[in-house]
C-alpha cells in the first residue's frame, strides 16, 4: 500500500514536472527571459538600499554609538573626578577635625591651668589673711595675758600686804610686798 501511494505521488510529480516543462520550457531560476527584469529591479532596489545605508542609516547609527561611548567615558571621568574631590574633602575634613581636637585639648588644658592658678592664688590670699588674723589674735592674747598677769601681780601684792598685815599686824611696804610676789612668781 505504501509503495502504491508513493508510486502515485512520484507519478504525479513527474506529470506535474512535464506539464510544467511543457508550459514554461525551463526551470524558473534558469529562465533567461526573466534575467533582465530581475537585474533591472535588483540594481534599482540595491542601489537605493546602498544609498540609504551609506548616507543615512550607517552614519547615524555610528554617530549614536560613538556618542554613547563618549558619554560613558565622559561620565566615568566625571565620576572619578567627583570621587577624587570627595576623597580630598574627606581628607580636609579629617585634618580639620584633628586640628580642632588638638585646639580643644589646648584650650581645655589652658583653662584648666588658668583655673588652677586662680584657685591657688585665692587659696594663698585666704591663707595669708588667715595667718595675719592668727598673728593678730596671738598678739592680742599675749597683750591680754600680760595685762592680766600684771593685774594678778598687783592683786597678789595687795593680797600679800593684806595677809601680812592681818598676820603680823604690821603693814609691809609696797615695795617689799611686790618684791616678795615677784620672787614667788619667779619660782613658778
Amino acid at each position: 500500500m505504501a509503495s502504491a501511494s508513493f508510486a502515485t505521488l512520484l507519478a504525479g510529480a513527474a506529470q506535474a514536472a512535464t506539464e510544467h516543462g511543457a508550459k514554461k520550457a525551463s526551470f524558473p531560476p534558469f529562465d533567461s527571459s526573466t534575467f533582465a527584469g530581475q537585474l533591472f529591479w535588483l540594481a534599482i532596489t540595491f542601489g537605493v538600499l546602498y544609498w540609504l545605508m551609506s548616507k543615512i542609516a550607517l552614519p547615524r547609527v555610528g554617530a549614536i554609538l560613538e556618542e554613547r561611548a563618549d558619554t560613558i567615558s565622559r561620565d566615568l571621568d566625571k565620576a572619578s573626578q567627583m570621587q577624587a574631590k570627595a576623597e580630598e574633602t574627606a581628607q580636609a575634613y579629617e585634618k580639620a577635625l584633628a586640628e580642632a581636637r588638638k585646639n580643644a585639648q589646648g584650650i581645655a588644658q589652658a583653662s584648666r591651668d588658668a583655673g588652677a592658678k586662680a584657685s591657688d592664688a585665692r587659696r594663698h590670699a585666704v591663707e595669708a589673711e588667715l595667718s595675719a588674723k592668727l598673728g593678730q589674735a596671738e598678739t592680742t592674747i599675749a597683750g591680754t595675758k600680760a595685762k592680766a598677769m600684771k593685774n594678778v601681780r598687783g592683786l597678789g601684792s595687795e593680797v600679800a600686804v593684806a595677809i601680812v598685815t592681818k598676820l603680823t599686824g604690821q603693814a609691809p611696804s609696797a615695795t617689799e610686798a611686790s618684791d616678795a610676789v615677784d620672787q614667788v612668781l619667779a619660782r613658778g
Binding site: A11, A13, A16, E19
Partner: peptide, 10 residues
C-alpha cells in the same frame, strides 16, 4: 491527484 501548484516544488 498531484496535479496543480500545491505539490509542484518548482
Amino acid at each position: 491527484m498531484a496535479a496543480g501548484g500545491g505539490i509542484d516544488p518548482i
